[in-house]
Nucleic acid binder design. Sequence first.
DNA 1: GATGATGCGTCAACCATGTTGACCCATCTT
DNA 2: AAGATGGGTCAACATGGTTGACGCATCATC
Lengths: 174, 174
Amino acid sequence: MVDASSVTLPPGLSPASPLFLREDEVRRGIELLYFGYSHMIRGADAILERHGLGRAHHRALYFIARKPGLPVSDLLRLLSITKQSLSRVLAELVARGLVRNEVGALDRRQRLLRLTEAGIELEAELFEALRARVTEAYGRAGQAAVTGFWAVLMGLIPVEDRALVLSLETSRAG
Amino acid sequence: MVDASSVTLPPGLSPASPLFLREDEVRRGIELLYFGYSHMIRGADAILERHGLGRAHHRALYFIARKPGLPVSDLLRLLSITKQSLSRVLAELVARGLVRNEVGALDRRQRLLRLTEAGIELEAELFEALRARVTEAYGRAGQAAVTGFWAVLMGLIPVEDRALVLSLETSRAG
DNA sequence: GATGATGCGTCAACCATGTTGACCCATCTT
DNA sequence: AAGATGGGTCAACATGGTTGACGCATCATC
């Protein structure tokens, strides 16, 4: 349990009532999730197009940036796609000099993925597009709302998959 | 401003700190949105497959169920796809007897979309799959969290598009 | 009442991104 | 030495999107 102070609501949006498990409230959540997700993702499309890349490339770049040196198998699990599908994306990113491929030190069968300098630069540009939108939404809604946002979303993830998501968190001392 | 009581966090997830606009907190939001959305949507895949339908059909069914009698143009705006793409989906739904097509009363150029009895039944089944997941997440996180969840997501939607989302809300007297 | 704009449907070609299935190689494990 | 695992690759195909061009019925306007 965590104390939440206050949540600022955008105009037209009423707060959850005690009957927040009714069908209408569920549909509202589904719709907001759909539109919110769509718009956030769309925010990077212009940049991607300028570079001749698609959303699949963006997802791969994002996770490689997030976990530099992650093996292909980890990326496969994060993306929930087949290796055939991923290999096409990865091959293009490598060909464009955005991603690099090292042999694993512990297990030489593994291929550890990293962004090149150019890759880091592009991912930063893509991230900035998302960051602008997310911090705007965070800031307007407030700290308490953000905690609630996280809590509901984590609850939508099956328990057995949560460790994977938490594994992305930057470990920080303190 | 709305008072929020308390938010229950899943294990492993810390609440937003006063520094909740930092890069790490933004990335966490992006990731939770990605995984939460993906898993929610995936929850209907088994039903869809049993009926030989895809996610595109699901989206169309969902919005037609939500706004019975909506014109094709509204559905196009909700889905953000081209009419050529939608017409393929719609034609299949009509052929399967899940969606019906009326001529508009005010404007006879419009085609107003409705679910048939079979369509209503299927959509209810699909909705139930999502509802189970969403109410579970809502219930575990708590009412205050849900309000925050909505507030952040609405904030991610560009102001000019929010009316469209709000137009889906069931108007309720009182 | 002709003219133009609008809502919708359709043909065709193409693109992005996913799938299944089969097969191969290098490397790790036992 | 034998088998399991991580990864790459070829090929065929599915899904769901795009652009562009065109046609028709209907509405709105001068």
